[in-house]
């Protein structure tokens, strides 16, 4: 028996929004620790890693480990049938292993819906992600990062991110010319969410495809802040924390400079 109840049901909508450009199907792994998902996009350039810890749910029961192969397009259709203030419960029954049920309850309990969705047999690879001490970790407002990625993609297909102790510089070039956006570390801020904080061991310069970074910024509604972790010649990690529950992380392989 698996049952996970989330009072803040709209969180699932945000999570699906944050994966929709990268994934069409994925396996949700459920255990006593929580629900997790790891999947590469079809081009194997990026990897999505979601963690929702069991203690972040309002009720959580997982008697045995369970892998649910989910068509995310179908799940999105079903989750759209919930209202933003609905309580969502995800249920899977050991006696009926080919389906998962989503139950939506209105806050006043006057409307209760349930939708049973067919599960898929997915043959997905699970990648081991090594613990890494990154050369640079930048925390910045998620909306600011979204804006930078959007603006840079007006100029070119790739962005070069150069991070020093002074700040982080985003550069793009294309047929129309070049663009640079430099964001300095915050001197002092009243609100933690508005801060730009750079933790640096050594300066790093890496180039990434903006197409993917823009897909990642679909997660902006999940968190006020985003963190970018970089080391030379390894994938960038873009992390959005999900308050009191876990995270949505994206890994993106760098581009090789010409």
């Amino acid at each position: 028996m698996f049952e996970a109840r989330l009072v803040q049901g709209s969180l699932l909508k945000k999570i699906l929004e944050a994966t929709k450009d990268l994934l069409t199907e994925a396996t949700f792994d459920c255990s006593s620790t929580g629900m997790s998902l790891q999947a590469m996009d079809s081009s194997h350039v990026s990897l999505v890693s979601l963690m929702l810890r069991s203690d972040g749910f309002d009720a959580y029961r997982c008697d045995r480990n369970l892998s649910m192969g989910i068509n995310l397009t179908s799940m999105t259709k079903i989750i759209k049938c919930s209202s933003n203030d609905d309580v969502v419960t995800i249920k899977a029954d050991d006696n009926n292993p080919d389906t998962v049920t989503f139950m939506f309850e209105s806050p006043n309990q006057e409307k209760v819906s349930d939708f049973e969705m067919k599960l898929m047999d997915l043959d997905t690879e699970h990648l081991g992600i090594p613990e890494t001490d990154y050369s640079v970790v930048v925390k910045m407002p998620a909306q600011e990062f979204q804006r930078v990625c959007r603006d840079m993609s007006q100029i070119g297909e790739s962005v070069t991110i150069c991070c020093t102790k002074d700040g982080i510089r985003f550069s793009a070039s294309g047929d129309l010319g070049t663009g640079n956006i430099k964001i300095a570390q915050s001197a002092n801020v009243d609100k933690e969410e508005e801060a730009v904080v750079i933790e640096m061991q050594e300066a790093v310069t890496l180039t990434f495809a903006l197409r993917y970074l823009n897909f990642f910024t679909r997660a902006t509604s999940l968190s006020g802040q985003v963190s970018l972790s970089m080391s030379p010649e390894v994938p960038l990690v873009v992390e959005y924390k999900i308050a009191d529950m876990g995270y949505m992380r994206y890994y993106l392989a760098p581009k090789i400079e010409d």
Partner: peptide, 14 residues
Amino acid sequence: DKNQMKISSFFQCD
């Protein structure tokens, strides 16, 4: 894109 590296060349299958 020949300059784009694959994520699978960094992380191994479990």
